[in-house]
Design a protein around this nucleic acid. Structure first.
Lengths: 157, 157
DNA sequence: CTTTATGCAAAAGGTTTGCAACAGT
DNA sequence: ACTGTTGCAAACCTTTTGCATAAAG
């Protein structure tokens, strides 16, 4: 079953309506395989469908998360980002604090160790998040070492 | 050098002023060895010093972060939390999505693997964050398994 | 027809900032 | 005296909501 069919199935199952907007938003979102903020997605949709509202983007994104088609990420700059959920295993992120590049990676050993640590503390894991911040290959040459905490935050203003 | 002396040193070095408020805030913050939100810290200080303003708490917290005495954490519920920076190695968090308990842990093997993964992608690591969400020992017995994404978010409203 | 969705504008809620009064150096 | 700081209120920014209108089933 392809992903946008999955959304329709979910909506039917819940007795919700399959609207133009929902389909448009889901298509644009699932098509772009990047991390998108609500605003970015909104701007992208607005170019072809100027009548779609930002609230609807937020509402649909929430639906997609509930339907298991998107996951919500928070990289600490005060903006939530969403990314399409692939069925292939969980992945984590390397984030460049200079250029903002986001690189995904997957590591079974780390996953396993996490479960181990959790078990040791009597914890049942439902999900986790791992983000590694630093300088990517391109940016590391002109490296500096202070003010790490601030870099990403700057766009908040 | 004890921590509040460190702050004074930092302020002097930067030509900033050592005020009553900064000292009070730093003391309360460094004393409570928990994760505190700005608001929590503010309420706690307000009991003994009702004249201190919330903005000053925010401003001082930022200072503490810059001085390397605090680190800022974001557990994804829209509220930034701060915790005193210890010099003893980095630690990560287990977070109960039912009762909100936050348990710290440290695991060298995971740290090492992270560096390894990063190096593989040409990345220079400056910091990272790992959070494992699930049910703590107390809460797991009455466990349920859906709606994980939403649990923590609820307090946002 | 009934029910759920939409768009807009307004509200929330955490965090930041402008400014005049104030305190440290 | 000179600068940096404070408290307050207002501004900000992302996200959510109330409501009247519109679209789906």
């Amino acid at each position: 079953m392809k992903t946008d069919e999955k959304l329709r199935a979910y909506l039917r199952r819940k007795g919700l309506k399959i609207t133009q907007q929902r389909q448009e938003i889901a298509e644009k979102f699932l098509g772009a395989n990047r991390h998108l903020s609500a605003e970015e997605l909104y701007q992208s949709i607005r170019r072809t469908h100027p009548e779609v509202g930002l609230s609807t983007v937020y509402r649909t994104l929430k639906l997609l998360v509930d339907a298991g088609l998107a996951s919500r990420r928070d990289f600490g700059d005060g903006i939530m980002r969403y990314e399409p959920c692939s069925d292939e295993g969980h992945h984590d992120h390397l984030i460049c604090i200079r250029c903002g590049a986001i690189i995904e990676f997957e590591n079974q050993k780390i996953e396993a160790l996490q479960k181990e640590v959790a078990a040791l503390k009597g914890f049942t894991v439902t999900r986790h998040r791992l983000e590694i911040y630093g300088y990517c290959e391109k940016c590391r040459s002109s490296g500096r070492s202070q003010g790490q905490q601030k870099k990403i935050r700057e766009r908040h203003r």
